[in-house]
């Protein structure tokens, strides 16, 4: 095996995690290659040094800061949790559109013309509604007249049929 290939196995060789065959191959190579065996001893030193890295203690100040997090979060979310519920999102979306339109109306430099056109549109809408209402009235009258005629014709047909049978 070449040195590059052996390098891939060195860590696992150190941790005794190779198969018997791989282990033998690495061992044989190391006996004949001073460069790889020197690398292995450096690797051992790295491994030993890292394992012995000390653990630091958490300072009192940091511990206090960490313990204060849940309380801070609670305070921060006190008013927001309710409004941030997913079920309220459509309502909030409609409300924000409404506020945008209202602010557009109030802060537009040409507020008067907007007001006039709004009034115009309102009047037009109102007159359309009145016309529709009167049309509906006429339609109602027509329908009741049609109903009366229809009932009369039915009555006439009934009497003529009854008279024919008596004859």
């Amino acid at each position: 095996m070449k040195c590059e290939k052996i390098e891939e196995f060195l860590s696992l060789y150190l941790e005794n995690e190779l198969t018997t065959e791989e282990k033998t191959a690495v061992k044989n190579h190391l006996q004949t290659c001073p460069s790889c065996s020197s690398l292995l001893s450096s690797l051992e030193e790295v491994h030993d040094s890292l394992i012995d890295f000390p653990e630091l203690e958490v300072s009192k100040d940091l511990r206090q800061r960490l313990q204060a997090i849940p309380r801070k979060k609670k305070k921060f979310n006190l008013g927001l949790d309710f409004f941030l519920r997913p079920s309220l999102q459509p309502v909030l979306a409609v409300a924000s559109i409404f506020f945008v339109l209202i602010s557009f109306y109030f802060f537009h430099p040409d507020k008067k013309s907007i007001h006039q056109s709004l009034e115009q549109q309102l009047h037009l809408g109102y007159s359309k509604v009145v016309k529709l209402y009167s049309k509906a009235g006429y339609l109602k009258q027509d329908l009741s007249a049609f109903k009366d005629n229809f009932l009369d014709s039915l009555q006439q047909q009934k009497t003529s049929l009854l008279g024919g049978n008596e004859d």
């Binding site: 060195l10 860590s11 696992l12 020197s38 690398l39 450096s42 690797l43 030193e45 790295v46």
Partner: peptide, 17 residues
């Protein structure tokens, strides 16, 4: 993971050497 551990150790071993 195994290959990254090996690469990391090798890099450090070379730096040390």
């Amino acid at each position: 993971i195994k290959s990254r551990v090996n690469r990391g150790r090798l890099q450090l071993a070379k730096i040390l050497k």
